[in-house]
């Protein structure tokens, strides 16, 4: 299935080659679990601090069982803050 990944800040280095600054369209197996997707890109659990699916935060404990579906946008940040 097709879906989208967005990696920000220090995680941009994990993005496959492409033209967009943060986003890539990727093809993955159907019903891929969120944690598996994160592992595929070699992002450690500590680095994957803020993980959103379609803009909604997914808690660490929910990531192993969260199934992704066609068209989902997964956005990932390392620990960041500001104000």
């Amino acid at each position: 299935m097709k879906m989208y990944i967005e990696f920000y800040a220090s995680l941009m280095k994990y993005l496959p080659p492409g033209n967009s600054r943060f986003r890539r369209e990727v093809k993955v197996e159907d019903s891929l679990k969120l944690n598996r997707l994160i592992e595929c890109y070699h992002i450690s659990p500590e680095e994957a601090h803020l993980v959103l699916v379609n803009g909604h935060y997914i808690y660490h404990e929910d990531r192993p069982n969260r199934k992704l579906i066609e068209g989902d946008v997964v956005s990932i940040w390392p620990p960041v803050a500001g104000g």
Partner: peptide, 16 residues
Amino acid sequence: GAVTGQGLPIYGTQVL
């Protein structure tokens, strides 16, 4: 701290 040791010095508040 990941934020105070790395995130803020590298990216500043604008990372938000």
